[in-house]
Every structure is written in C-alpha cells, then in structure tokens.
Design a protein around this nucleic acid. Sequence first.
DNA 1: GCCAACGTTGGC
DNA 2: GCCAACGTTGGC
Length: 165
Amino acid sequence: MTAPQTCAPRRYWLMKNEPDTESIDHALAAPDATLAWSGVRNYQARNFMRDRMQVGDGVLYWHSGCALPGIYGLACIASAARVDPTQFDPASPYFDPRATPDKPRWLLVDVKALRKTRPVDMATLRADPQLSRMQVLQKGNRLSITEVTPEEWQHLCGTLLQDAP
DNA sequence: GCCAACGTTGGC
DNA sequence: GCCAACGTTGGC
C-alpha cells in the first residue's frame, strides 16, 4: 500500500540553451533570474513540460552549440506550462504558421536560475560510471529537454557540482 | 563544415 | 498507415 500522492515527488531535468543569448549568466541577470523557455519545437520535449514538470523541479542548466557543451548552472522550474507566444510571431525564428491562438501547438515554462556551477563537460560526465546512462550522453540524443534521475541528480550534486575545494 | 541520428512530411 | 525524402539538431 502506497501513500496517497497528495504531493507528487520532485523531478529533475536537463535543459539545453544556447549560451550566446541565453547563458546561465543571462538568466541570472534577468528579472527575478527567470527566463521564459521559449522556442521548444519538439513534441516530446513539449509533453515533458506539459505532463511531467512541476514548479520546484530541479534543472541542470546546459550550454549547447558552443565550444564546450555541458552543465554550467543550476536552476528550477518556476511556472506551469503555458502557451509559447513566439509561435504566433512572424518575426520570430520560432514562428509556426500552423499554430493559431485558438489551437496553439507549443508551450513553455519559466526557468529560474539559482547559481552557476563549475563547467562540467561531456567528457567529464562520460568518465563517471554512475552517469553513463544519462540521456544527454546517449548516442543520437537531440532532445533539448531530458529527464535526470534522482540518483543522477544526487550523485552530481555530491561530486561534480560541488564548489571547487 | 561534417555527418549521424532522429523527427516530420506527404505521396501513395 | 507505410515509408522515402527531407530538414533539423548538435556534438565533434
């Protein structure tokens, strides 16, 4: 017999962003250190936001498309999923002509940056046997949002993401 | 800039 | 509903 799920367990996420314009530094400098995570155009990632994310979930803030992709900060989910307005904006690179306000296709969440970490790149992650199953390390992974297990999160926080000695 | 992997599209 | 072609992602 399990306890009633009045309070669902916290989950953990890895969220990729381009550091040119939306680095952990940009996020920390934003009002309330919070960014609207717009531009997700993949159904699986959208469904994570819609179905599984909850306010307070932990986030590994990942920089991608840069010299050294990896974890650069810690953040948390700061809002429920809501309609991503960039899908309706013809001037936006994320414009989706098939989306209408009546039938929106894409969602976003607010992400609140908490702090920078030391950079932890993919080679470092791969060198840790306890992290070998992280989705971001799997061949062919292209998802910009992946779920991190509580074990991976705890392990990371206890080792690689601790402040330098 | 390359290219493997994967998602999406659209003809049938 | 199949599946080939195409586009995109993102590490390298």
